[in-house]
Every structure is written in C-alpha cells, then in structure tokens.
Design a protein around this nucleic acid. Sequence first.
DNA 1: GCCTTTATGATAATTATTCTCATTATCATG
DNA 2: CATGATAATGAGAATAATTATCATAAAGGC
Lengths: 125, 125
Amino acid sequence: MTRQREMILDEFLRIEGHLTAEELTLAVKKRDSTIGQATVYRILKILVDSGIAREVRLGSNVVKYEHNIDHEHHDHLICERCGKTIEIVDQRIEELQKGLAEDHKFIITGHIMNIFGICEECRGR
Amino acid sequence: MTRQREMILDEFLRIEGHLTAEELTLAVKKRDSTIGQATVYRILKILVDSGIAREVRLGSNVVKYEHNIDHEHHDHLICERCGKTIEIVDQRIEELQKGLAEDHKFIITGHIMNIFGICEECRGR
DNA sequence: GCCTTTATGATAATTATTCTCATTATCATG
DNA sequence: CATGATAATGAGAATAATTATCATAAAGGC
Ligand SMILES: [Mn+2]
Ligand SMILES: [Mn+2]
Ligand SMILES: [Zn+2]
Ligand SMILES: [Zn+2]
C-alpha cells in the first residue's frame, strides 16, 4: 500500500458518476501534482480487477470508470444527441439474459446493455 | 463509384462473420495491393452510415464489423475464455428495452447487448 | 535501520484511427 | 470523346489512448 494508491483510490471513491482515466488523473494531480499518468492507469486496472471499479463504454470508444461497490449493477440508457445517461435495471431482462445463456449452456458471468435513443429534451428542440 | 469502393464492398460482403478493418484491408490487398489503409477506413465508415455494415464491439477495445443487410438484428453471447461468439435475439427482451426507454421518455434508436459467460467446452477443461 | 521486493515517474513505444495534401480518377457536359 | 470541375485516393504524418521500459524510490518484514 503506497501513498499513491491511497490517494487515487480515495479520489476515485469521492467522485460519483462516470469518469475517464484522464479525469481521474487531473483530480489526483490537484492534490499531488507529482503523480504520474502511468500510475493512475496501473491503479485503475487494479481497482477493476479487485471489483472496486467497473469499466463503462457508452458507444464511442471512450472508456470510463464507475464505482462497482455500494452501487448496484445497472445498465445505461443514453441520449445520442446530448449524451445524457440514465442508469437502468430491469429484473425481467436480467432473468431472460440468464435464460438465454443457459439455453446455450453458458455459465453467465456478466453482461453489458446500452440502450440508445433521443431524450425528451433533445426532441423538444 | 470508384474501383476501390466496388472492390472493398464486394470483399466485405463476401466475408461472413465479424472482421476488423485490418482483416478487411488484408483481404482487399490480396486482390489489389495498391489499395490504401485509409481508403478502407473511409469506406467502412460509409458502409456503416449507409446501413450496410454494423460496428460490433465484444468487450475489449477491438472494433469489428459485420453485415447489416440480409442479416437480422441480433445481440451476442460471448465466451470469456475462448472468445466463441453466438448470435442471439430474444423478442421479449427487445420489448422490455423499448418499454424502459419509453418510461424515461426516450425514443429508442438502438441498443447493444453483450452477454458474457463461459461456454460448455471451456468448462470441460 | 537494513535489505529485498515491488511500485513509481518519466519517457519511449505501440496501436488504431484520422488527417493532410499532392496526385489521380470520375463523370456530367459541350 | 476530350475537358475540366469535383471528389476520391494513397502515402505518410499526426493524434490519442494505453502500455512497456527502466532507473530510482518507497514499502514492509526482519
Ligand atoms: Mn453507471
Ligand atoms: Mn454478429
Ligand atoms: Zn438528449
Ligand atoms: Zn469457450
């Protein structure tokens, strides 16, 4: 356990929502500008592996991270125009997914579901 | 309409399944080695925009493409060990997705659903 | 405190994709 | 068919995100 790890973990947990590696780096550098980019990447990987963080990819190729503890599993509903993202979960879908996997004799380990659309606000304009 | 476009489209349609930009470039270069990488990228983008091709991202950051015509919409069930990919579709899930979007006053434009698991074969070993 | 091990920071390397721009091909028109 | 305006191409540079390298520094058991 190093000073850097404590600081990066702490900062990650302090920030709610989805954030990129770069955004986390920026936040951490405000506290200690000597922390290196590579270290943030390294520790983000550790956080994902240990189940503290989760990767989120909402369309595009931008990788973001979000809390994976004290934060129930959920999927995302994304507005294609403004990028607004709503966290959703539907137990019936989760069940059907499990069933589909079983039909093919898979043991399910996870899933990603992004629903894309246009939000009401964006339609207004 | 250029020679390159014809050739790249033709080669893309000839190949079933998921393929990367690089794989398509390779296939096309076998026919005409003078075709440039950038042209393949450019034309792939056109194919996606025109609805002939569809981007597929199965976990990781590898972008693949598949046919989007004469090929019903589907989602993917992926083995995390061997990468085997099964195309799936469940009308009940599609309906529920639509409902979820409506609940949030979104007009749905599409979705991505990847289910991850371990296939029977991989479990055997 | 000392020593082995592991982590860190700076920077180079890598990879996929996009951009730039001089050259070339396309195609409507005379 | 020639012509010329317009758009597409190919080569390579540029970009951006992530990973690798490696000398130096910090951590933690003794
Ligand atoms: Mn989320
Ligand atoms: Mn497919
Ligand atoms: Zn919107
Ligand atoms: Zn498998």
